[in-house]
């Protein structure tokens, strides 16, 4: 069920010594990161820590000030932005939006809408959707072309708690169907971390990374977020069983390794 012509084992996306800056101000420095096929990685960090910039750099929307980003050849990215502002002057139906930039057949578009939990919205104008509906339509568009990686940039911002929980359940379901990797930036630490293989804690650089439990107990993480989320993490912890294809051999042992950078 793993498709694509990529060589198994090579990362989908890799950042090498990546530095980003906004004008003269440095945003992120010396980030080394690999995303393997089928992995769920969550990026956490306080406001202004460079999370969104990092994601934008990974999809190619902002250039690297230093270092490189390698994307696997033919990599299909499904991207769900933080929010999408639709110009009032732009008439755009959900159906038309799903066909941008590549035309897809109608049945496929409908399947994606169903998978994202917004089956009957095809003929609606994007601007008439509620925040939650719009995020789900964005998810539908992101999964439309069966991406190798789903990148979610605080995709649940503006949703209420049940909405957020439902949205993540949807993503989990979609992921199991597609077997794609998931890279998400989030504020919803307790919900997200428990479903992740690996957590990356950013604050201008990689503070710490590892399994959710390891990061949650790391001093660097606690210094940023306090200890308040630990109980919640336990509470929301649930088993997720995901199967990797036989030709997918990323090393789980590597993921549980806890690495910290010096401050």
């Amino acid at each position: 069920m793993i498709q694509g012509a990529m060589i198994p084992g090579t990362p989908l996306i890799e950042a090498v010594d990546l530095c980003l800056s906004y004008g003269a101000a440095p945003v992120l420095r010396d980030v080394n990161f690999r995303l393997q096929r089928g992995e769920i990685v969550t990026i956490v960090g306080p406001n202004g820590s460079g999370k969104s910039s990092f994601v934008h750099a990974l999809i190619g929307a902002i250039p690297a000030a230093k270092g490189q980003i390698h994307r696997a050849k033919g990599l299909r990215i499904g991207y769900v932005p933080q929010k999408l502002g639709i110009e009032p002057s732009l008439p755009l139906t959900v159906q038309r939006f799903l066909n941008l930039p590549h035309k897809v057949d109608k049945q496929r578009a409908n399947q994606a809408l169903i998978a994202a939990g917004v089956a009957d919205l095809g003929r609606r104008q994007l601007r008439q959707l509620s925040g939650g509906q719009l995020q789900r339509v964005l998810l539908a568009r992101a999964i439309l072309l069966r991406p190798d990686v789903l990148i979610l940039d605080e995709a649940t911002q503006g949703l209420d708690q049940p909405g957020t929980a439902a949205f993540y359940r949807q993503i989990e379901q979609v992921r199991q169907e597609l077997g794609c990797a998931v890279l998400m930036v989030s504020h919803d630490l307790h919900v997200v971390m428990s479903a992740s293989d690996r957590v990356l804690c950013l604050n201008g650089h990689i503070c710490c990374e590892g399994t959710p439990e390891i990061v949650a107990s790391a001093p660097e993480y606690r210094a940023l977020f306090g200890t308040g989320t630990q109980g919640a993490l336990a509470l929301y912890r649930h088993e997720h069983s995901h199967s990797h294809g036989p030709d997918c051999d990323h090393e789980h042992s590597f993921l549980s390794e806890h690495r910290t950078n010096d401050h």
Partner: peptide, 19 residues
């Protein structure tokens, strides 16, 4: 047309689609 349109909607979405 389509590339211009998705860029208009969101430069990031365009970029993620390889445009």
């Amino acid at each position: 047309w389509n590339a211009l349109l998705i860029t208009t909607v969101s430069p990031e979405l365009a970029q993620a689609s390889g445009i």
